[in-house]
Amino acid sequence: MGNFKKIGRDFIKEKYPELNEILFDSMSAIFGNLVSAKRMSKGLSQDELASMADVSQKTISRVEGGSSNVTMHTYQKLFRILDISNEEVAEALQKKAKRGNKPLVTIY
């Protein structure tokens, strides 16, 4: 994940200088939210997605929980299976930057 963070930081600094470094501290959470939302919108259970991606249900749970112990290869498989585009990832990163440290959702 370290190399990915460096590549991401370099890309963001060049293309989106207004984005701050806090983005990369929570990238796993951003990716997890994308995967969770897309999985649910497609009506898939964690078990079904795990089977499609040839990973365990526990891995899907870790992804959706924002664990930093997930490889880029796993994210790429899940993004491909769930049709999560690069544009959706960039948009989620920009939204996070605009929110700063605010939570992704408010629970009442």
Rank of each mutant, 00 (worst) to 15 (best):
M1P: 13
G2A: 14
N3E: 08
K6W: 04
K6T: 13
I7Y: 07
G8Y: 09
R9Q: 14
I12W: 01
I12H: 02
K13D: 14
E14G: 06
Y16E: 14
Y16L: 15
E18Q: 15
E18W: 12
E18F: 11
L19A: 11
N20T: 09
E21D: 14
L23D: 05
F24S: 07
D25I: 09
D25R: 14
S26W: 06
M27V: 14
M27A: 13
M27E: 14
M27W: 14
I30Q: 08
I30A: 07
F31K: 04
V35I: 15
S36L: 15
A37D: 13
R39C: 07
R39I: 12
M40A: 12
M40S: 10
S41R: 13
S41G: 03
G43P: 11
S45H: 13
Q46F: 08
D47W: 02
E48Y: 05
S51L: 09
D54S: 09
V55Y: 07
Q57G: 08
I60H: 02
I60W: 05
R62K: 13
R62Y: 15
E64D: 12
G66C: 11
S67P: 08
S67W: 12
S68D: 15
N69I: 06
M72Y: 10
T74K: 01
Y75C: 06
Y75G: 04
Q76H: 05
Q76A: 10
K77C: 06
L78N: 02
F79A: 07
R80D: 10
I81S: 01
I81C: 00
L82H: 05
D83N: 03
I84W: 05
S85T: 15
S85E: 04
S85A: 05
N86Q: 11
N86I: 08
N86D: 13
E87V: 10
E88I: 01
V89P: 04
A90Y: 01
L93N: 00
Q94T: 12
K95S: 02
K95H: 03
K95A: 04
K96V: 02
K96I: 01
A97P: 01
K98P: 01
K98S: 04
R99W: 03
G100P: 00
G100A: 02
N101Y: 06
N101P: 02
N101F: 04
P103V: 00
L104D: 00
T106I: 10
T106W: 08
I107T: 00
Y108K: 11
Y108Q: 05
Y108G: 07
